[in-house]
Design a protein around this nucleic acid. Structure first.
Length: 494
RNA sequence: CGGGAUGUAGUUCAGUCCGGUUAGAAUGCCUGGUUUGGGACCAGGUGGUCGAAGGUUCGAAUCCUUUCAUCCCGACCA
């Protein structure tokens, strides 16, 4: 580990390459020796764990419980809901056999043809089908409702073009699946989880998002409504960070899940499903990082403060350590994650660069000069500003500094995103603004045909109909000139 | 699955057009020493069945055929 770590491609030169290099050099993940799959390395996983833990708490607060359903789904389940199959069939991995054997010519193991499965099994691309086949047995009466389950799991979608964190054949996620007695309650649940996601992504990841509802074509396969939160990457594309679906009674009907209501009438259950994945890591990286590497919001940084000693002799190091250890204990007592890197086999300059690539929010450097003057050099990763401050009292100022960095990162990302969200009223302007990498608010006649034409001609899709700000306004479709009652958000996307 | 490119050391690549000593560089890694306030330096060392299979040839990283894999641009997608 050394020079190879840094020397990132500049973001402006080749965004994809910069992103890939950053993921690898920041030690977050790497390509697995399996097609389209990813190894999440300990440092990357530490961030994911923080995301997991925080979200899981939010789910519990909103009354949800965790459960686990099988990885393998009988093929026939998938075909129960017509739209659902159509959406996922093309990207499913299929298990056809259950045994290997040694090849007779000694060339290794082969699939045993005698062990062919009667019915093939699908590696879950999502769990609606297996879960609804299970819920059928759990639900008889309105007294069994609502069911508010979540599962943390891996899923597999045989994607054509994998990209670390953003799109891999296998990914980790969380999928909530709820069952309700009434339509209103289910719709409310779907919207509630969308706001849970928004609050998390903005509050913890410091990534600003546009909350909205998907157009018919962009909807989840089998949903009546898909609610989304969309973030912006630094190359001006939209990234779907989380989705929450109102599934209506589609799955209940497909899996025959009926319950007896208070009036002793039989009805189908109302459903939602919602999820976020390790793609959030991609959103995080693409929202904040700079040419020096990752920039992590303090709330998710595995290491919030790193301390680097600068010394010549073992005695010097001892003196520095004695002083630093007191601070380390004081900070840890306040719940701050601190690393004192006194490793003797790397030089300070190397450590500086290394922790910069890894996005550690605050760095303290302490040498003999500081020891005599009672000072310390403090650098914040988001601005890269260095200043020499008094050592005494640091344990009191650092928590506030971390809060400050958290806010600053969000504000910076938001200001930048806002500056790239433009209203557009002509198709020429529309094309120019999309080409420039902006989010475009434009009138649309509401038809899938127009949506498809625009996508074909500009590669821009409707990301959502925004919900957090009012876009209601009379106007004319930017493409057809037909009347429109509100603007919708267009962008190119990942 | 269409269009383009590339497979040579852990990594990034040179060498391939025009076949010919023992296949190179940088970087990493290991050892020793000097260093240490922004990615150290010197010396020595380790490391490659040239993606795989077949063919042409006295001789193949280099030419031919087949195949596999990866990357980029599309289509698909959290």
């Amino acid at each position: 580990m050394a020079k190879e770590l840094k020397d990132l491609t500049k973001r402006s030169e080749n965004y994809s390459q910069w992103y890939n290099e950053l993921v690898v050099k920041a030690d977050l993940a790497e390509q697995a020796p399996v097609r389209g799959c990813m190894v999440i390395k300990p440092y990357g996983y530490a961030i994911w764990e923080k995301i997991q833990r925080t979200l899981d708490d939010k789910f519990k607060e909103t009354g949800h419980v965790n459960a686990y359903f099988p990885l393998l789904i009988p093929k026939s389940y998938l075909s129960r809901e017509a739209e659902h199959v159509e959406g996922f069939a093309k990207e499913c991995a299929v298990v056809t056999h259950y045994r290997l054997k040694n090849a007779e010519d000694g060339s290794g193991v082969i699939v045993d043809p005698a062990a062919k499965l009667e019915e093939e099994l699908i590696v879950r691309p999502t769990s609606e089908t297996i879960i609804w086949a299970t819920y059928k047995n759990w639900i008889k009466s309105y007294r069994d409702l609502p069911i508010l389950c979540n599962q943390w799991a891996n899923v597999m979608r045989w994607e054509m073009r994998p990209r670390l964190f953003l799109r891999t054949a296998e990914f980790l996620w969380q999928e909530g699946h709820t069952a309700h007695a009434t339509r209103e309650e289910a719709e409310q649940e779907a919207r509630r989880m969308q706001t849970v996601y928004r609050d998390f992504v903005e509050g913890y990841m410091a990534v600003p998002v546009v909350r909205g509802v998907k157009s018919e074509t962009e909807r989840f396969a089998g949903a009546l409504d898909t609610y989304t939160i969309e973030s912006m990457t630094q190359d001006g594309k939209a990234l779907q960070c989380g989705t929450s679906h109102f599934l209506g009674q589609n799955f209940a009907k497909a899996f025959d899940v009926q319950f007896v209501d208070k009036d002793n009438k039989l009805d189908y259950v109302w459903a939602t499903s919602w999820g976020v994945s390790t793609r959030l890591m991609g959103a995080l990286i693409m929202a904040h990082s700079d040419d020096n590497g990752l920039v992590l919001p303090p709330k998710l940084a595995p290491i919030q403060v790193v301390i680097v000693p600068i010394y010549k002799t073992a005695e010097d190091l001892e003196k520095i350590s004695a002083k630093v250890n007191v601070l380390v204990d004081a900070l840890r007592a306040k719940g701050i994650s601190v690393k004192y890197d006194d490793a003797d086999n790397k030089r300070p300059g190397f450590k500086f660069a290394d922790y910069e690539v890894k996005g550690v929010p605050v760095r303290l450097a302490l040498g003999m000069r500081d020891l005599e003057a009672g000072t310390v050099e403090l650098m914040r990763r988001d601005t890269l500003e260095k200043e020499t401050v008094q050592f005494e009292g640091l344990e009191n100022t650092i928590p506030a500094l971390l809060d400050d960095i958290q806010k600053a990162i969000f504000e910076k990302a938001k200001a930048w995103r806002d500056s790239r969200m433009v209203k557009v009223d002509s198709y020429d302007d529309f094309k120019a603004q999309i080409e420039a990498g902006n989010f475009v608010l434009a009138h649309w006649d509401g038809t899938p045909e127009t949506e498809a034409k625009i996508k074909e001609e500009t590669k821009a899709t409707i990301r959502c109909i925004p919900m957090d700000f009012d876009t209601t306004e009379e106007g004319k479709c930017v493409y057809t000139g037909q009347p429109s009652h509100r603007r919708v958000l267009f962008a190119r996307s990942y």
